[in-house]
Amino acid sequence: MLELRLVQGSLLKKVVDAIRDLVNDASFDCSATGFSLQAMDSSHVALVALLLRSEGFDHYRCDRNISMGMNLNNMAKMLRCAGNDDIITFKGDDGSDTVSFMFESPTQDKISDFEMKLMDIDSERLGIPEAKYQAIVRMPSTEFARICKDLGSIGDTVVISVTKEGVKFSTRGDIGSANIVCRQNTDVDKPEQATTVEMNDPVSLTFALRYMNSFTKATPLSNQVTISLSSELPVVVEYKIAEMGYVRFYLAPKIEE
């Protein structure tokens, strides 16, 4: 028996919208720790890891570990039927081939029930080793999204370079080239507007912009994004979900031959 209740139901919508551009079908795992997912994109170049900790839910019951294969577009279709202020309760039963979503309006005058079919998914789980990154950049998530969108209209790849000057995003395409430098800036009115650059060693890596632009679908989840870089390691683009957990995207760098 599985029962998860989330008063801030819109959060679940945002989570699904954050990852469905990258992954079509995924296996959600439920345990005492929380509701989690790990999935690769169809080209096996990027990986998404989601964690919603059990403490973050208003009610969390998970009698035993359970994996549920879901189609994210179908899940989005169901969640789109919930109002933005609705309370969402997600229910599953051992051995059942469906799960259910219940949406309650804040005033309790409308209650909707949706049942969604589960899918059989062969999920391969990857072990992600702890790494000490050469550079960690924290910046406003909207700023990062803007940079990826702007550079995506000029080139296919982005070179992210971190030096003591700050972080530089560069691209090159048929029409020309572009460089955007963001300097560390903590002198701001609100902490979420800050850009911080933590650098142990300078680092410069090349990534496909298509994936970076896909990661920015998670922007509504968090005001800040954390980009962790190390030579010849996948970059980690992390959006923290307040009080609950995170969505982390890993992207393999393009390596010079």
Binding site: M40, H44, V45, E124, R125, P234, Y250, L251, E257
Partner: peptide, 14 residues
């Protein structure tokens, strides 16, 4: 010339 490797090259299967 840059080449894109699958992410599995970087992480182990568990």
């Amino acid at each position: 010339q840059h080449r894109q490797f699958p992410i599995i090259i970087f992480f182990a299967m568990t």
